[in-house]
Design a protein around this nucleic acid. Sequence first.
DNA 1: TTGTAGGCGTTATCAG
DNA 2: CTGATAACGCCTACAA
Lengths: 334, 334
Amino acid sequence: MSRSGHGRNGAPTIYDIAAVAGVNPSTVSRALSRPERVAEATVARVKQAAQSLNYQANPIARALHTGRLQTIGLIVADLLNPVYFEVVRGAQAAAAAGNYTLVLAQSVEDPEAEMLAAQRLAGTVDGQILVTSRLDDSQIRELAEVKPVVVINREVQGVTSLAPEVGPVIGEALEHLWATGQRRIAYLPGPLRSWANRQRSRALAEAVETRGMRLTVLDTQPPTREGGAAALEQVLASGASTVFAYNDLMAIGLLQVCARASIHIPEQLGIIGFDDIFGADFTTPALSTVRLPLFDCGARALSSLIHHIEQGEPAESSHIPGSQLILRGSLASV
Amino acid sequence: MSRSGHGRNGAPTIYDIAAVAGVNPSTVSRALSRPERVAEATVARVKQAAQSLNYQANPIARALHTGRLQTIGLIVADLLNPVYFEVVRGAQAAAAAGNYTLVLAQSVEDPEAEMLAAQRLAGTVDGQILVTSRLDDSQIRELAEVKPVVVINREVQGVTSLAPEVGPVIGEALEHLWATGQRRIAYLPGPLRSWANRQRSRALAEAVETRGMRLTVLDTQPPTREGGAAALEQVLASGASTVFAYNDLMAIGLLQVCARASIHIPEQLGIIGFDDIFGADFTTPALSTVRLPLFDCGARALSSLIHHIEQGEPAESSHIPGSQLILRGSLASV
DNA sequence: TTGTAGGCGTTATCAG
DNA sequence: CTGATAACGCCTACAA
């Protein structure tokens, strides 16, 4: 049977190489993937032939057998949100290093779309990373039963969970505020159902308490500039001298509305956000913020996943250190 | 031969469905992919069985035969550059709509890395999109011979090329400048080898000429904030009253260094950039800029690619309309 | 060390 | 309309 003669797409196959090198196709396969089990001379001839034909192994055919395509799916809620891009970059870097390819999908902030995307992806990838997932714990576990899964910015029992560590850096921020005479803090929350919001809110409450400062938790707002701007009135009413916003977008919205209302930052009101998004230092004054180790989260998620895929056992959950307090003009300096 | 009994990974196959539904596996395949060629009753039974087994077709096995994995590769030079966000989003949206999955890769601004990524990807994807590619025309054509390719922000003979249209909007910008009394314009170029830089530079020169204004082309600078800041001296020396920067990053760098030098924007110097990147309106004054239809470019690239893949013939190259002049505080108003 | 002979899960061709 | 059966390209026992 002539199995040779180029595949559908015209690409050469191991059969073509076999013909050129004068050996059996299976020998070609071996020579290429396990050269130590083939005579040196044969390996040389095969490699030569492969080179001359410009051979590239067909990953799909390989995957059909091994079950692995060397791809990892990354699902983020919203590609527009610059916060996620550092995660993507970190993951991309680690993927390239481990010889994996990243497959990107977007959930559009919609749990159903996210589940759909995840299930579709599950067939094509060797593992998945969910960033700030909107899914239920049970849905996530369901996905994790099929293929290895790592979640970022979330904690799910039984699934490798990675999140930036925020306790220490929030403590550091409060030390700074204390040193500059601030005693009354307000927290402007984001989506109450968000795990990150709860994490930040809780850590802040704790840190404030241990220092004997006063915390006012404002009403929740959408995690956007508009949301931040909308909070102005309540911020002023709270009597707080510094506002911690759930994220930089809200902080910037608040900062800009203050400028329009001629409220001086940081003299009359200090503002600090989370994320250190791109552009956080474009504002006047530049925004102080907590920079999270998002690149590391992405990279770590990937290596955890690769570990799981290749070793067969899930990696441990952990809090990723490396959060930094970024002091800029929106907070008074010592 | 018992072909049934769940695949390697435990997932049910068409053999399992066949057993449950009491038909031949090939009938299952047909009932699922071409129901019109199978008796209604049979289709119903098969679908029922599939549902009850929670069957999901294995895309890899399908791809082995059809040669298509329903995936499209997107290679960008640098994921950190927010300019690309919109392209990615547009592509992602169109991909989802066309039932394709986006595979993302990064070239790290390095032609060799880009070629490597493209070649690796070529095996797994049905087509590729190169954004602001650093490759030679010949290398791109080489890739295009294997799988369909679309390039964005570039023009390559023989390959579908998509780029934002900039002529009209630059004309519009100059009308505005003219109306506010500006006559002497400077252009602060980005990388001279960049196709986008040449496109912008040429369109600007043409538009200035037809209006009898004066254009000074400054020395090239890196396309970063630092590059923009570094140009200050030359900007002042040029005597221009308005600077067109190659991109927003440079424009913002220039704007910020002006603030430090107490040069009033826009009274003493008008500044306008390209891209309308995230954060362009965070500055004081907010940056005027030319917003490019990047989302559309991404979406269009995808539909062109899908057309090519499914119809077998390449789509036409075109300039994508929809560029907008965004007037903010960094230019004087009429 | 190398060749033979399946098998991976699906689709497509060809009879029946 | 449905059932065999042969690819798709690669991998891997097993046999030689």
